[in-house]
Every structure is written in structure tokens, then in C-alpha cells.
């Protein structure tokens, strides 16, 4: 067979590649497979949401089954069951909220320590006295300080915070979460933590000091 033809160029031969066409059956199969694979991809994308939901669901089911054993009735069907389920969900959410709150308190105490503000929350009077000693040492070289001292006249259920200001007071605009206790040369007390981050940054210095009540 004479294969060589003087009129045929490389470009003509390459057109043979373009002429290769799949059948309509091929495209039918192709469309079907593509649709299936696209759906599978979508399911994979949302699978992590499902994992979390499944975990929560399992936890609730476990609580319900414990309650079922305790109460001896089918809680899934009764109104009591619904109440227990709601309470369980509330409990889980509360735990999450508490966990987050603990985190934020820890963060706040770190900031307070860095700013040389001593936390007085849930401290006994004796501890506060110790703190005051340390505070006095810190304040020896500075006029701007927060003093915490022991006061026998006050109820011992409360930690006592006495704030003294040596220098003149200034009128300042207080943050909404802070209640001014004293301004100027006066004393007052509070057992609550000066816990506002905004306060720590804004009012540590200059002179006016404040605390907020949380009775």
C-alpha cells in the first residue's frame, strides 16, 4: 500500500484527531456520572456539619436514655421527656457558655496582672491584707495606686476595697459598665472586681479610681 501522499500535510493529519467523536451513549453516561459525582462532592463538603450535629444528637440521646432508666418511662414520647430534652440542651449550652466565660475571666485576669491591678474578687480579708502589703510596696514609688486594706467594721462575707486618691480629682466620663464609687479625697468600699478591660486600660492612671458594685 502506498502510504505517502504528496498532498497531505501534518495539519491535515491532525484533523483526524478532531474527527474522533464519542457516541451519544457516551455523553449520556458522562452526564449521569457527572451529576452523581457533583452530588457526592456536595455531600462531602457538608459532612463536618453533620458530624457535629450527630455528636450533639448522641449526647442528648445518651442523657435521654439515662433519664429513661431513672424515671422508668418512655421519655421520648411523654411531655416530661420533651422537658428533659429541652433541659438537657439548655444544660449543654450553659456548659459551653460557662466554658467561654471562664476563658474570658482568665484572659481578663492576665490583663489585670500585667497592668498591676490586683483582683479582689472572691478574696478573703486576710488575703486582701496580704495583697495590700504588696500593693504598698508597689505604690511606694508612685502616687497613683489602688489601695486595698482590711476593715474590721465591715461584714466579713465581703472583700473590702478601699480606694484612696492622694491627688486632685478630675471629672471623667465613665464607661457604662463601671459605677463610680469615689472621686477625690474620700473612701468607700466594694467587694467587686474592677474587671472592666476598658476600665483597666483607660482609668488605671491618672488619679480618679473607681470600682463597680456587684452585690
Amino acid at each position: 500500500m502506498n502510504k505517502k501522499n504528496s498532498n497531505i500535510r501534518l495539519e491535515d493529519l491532525l484533523k483526524l484527531k478532531k474527527a474522533e467523536q464519542p457516541s451519544s451513549e457516551f455523553w449520556r453516561r458522562f452526564d449521569k456520572q457527572l451529576k452523581r459525582r457533583t452530588l457526592q462532592t456536595c455531600i462531602k463538603d457538608i459532612s463536618w456539619y453533620r458530624s457535629i450535629l450527630r455528636l450533639i444528637n448522641n449526647q442528648i440521646s445518651a442523657i435521654l436514655s439515662i433519664n429513661h432508666a431513672s424515671f422508668g418511662c418512655d421519655l421520648n414520647k411523654s411531655w416530661l421527656g420533651k422537658m428533659v430534652a429541652t433541659a438537657s440542651v439548655f444544660l449543654i449550652l450553659s456548659c459551653i457558655a460557662l466554658y467561654l466565660q471562664i476563658d474570658s475571666i482568665e484572659d481578663r485576669s492576665i490583663i489585670a496582672t500585667d497592668s498591676k491591678v490586683i483582683s479582689v474578687e472572691s478574696q478573703s480579708i486576710k488575703e486582701l491584707a496580704e495583697i495590700n502589703k504588696k500593693r504598698a510596696e508597689i505604690s511606694a514609688s508612685s502616687n497613683d495606686f489602688l489601695a486595698v486594706v482590711e476593715d474590721e467594721k465591715l461584714d466579713k462575707d465581703y472583700g473590702v476595697e478601699i480606694i484612696s486618691i492622694a491627688n486632685k480629682s478630675e471629672a471623667i466620663e465613665f464607661a457604662s459598665d463601671a459605677i463610680p464609687v469615689i472621686i477625690g479625697d474620700a473612701v468607700d468600699y466594694s467587694d467587686s472586681l474592677v474587671n472592666s478591660v476598658e476600665f483597666t486600660k483607660k482609668y488605671l492612671n491618672p488619679y480618679p479610681q473607681l470600682a463597680n458594685f456587684a452585690f
Binding site: 501522499n5 498532498n7 497531505i8 491535515d12 483526524l16 474527527a19 467523536q21
Partner: peptide, 17 residues
């Protein structure tokens, strides 16, 4: 390769050949 070839897409020189 596919067995089916669309001859309308092949160059005239090839068809002639």
C-alpha cells in the same frame, strides 16, 4: 482511539486520499 470518525471534520486532502 475511537472507531467512529466524523468524516465531515477531516481535511479534503485526506478524504481524497
Amino acid at each position: 482511539s475511537y472507531e467512529s470518525i466524523d468524516e465531515t471534520l477531516i481535511g479534503s486532502e485526506i478524504i481524497e486520499f
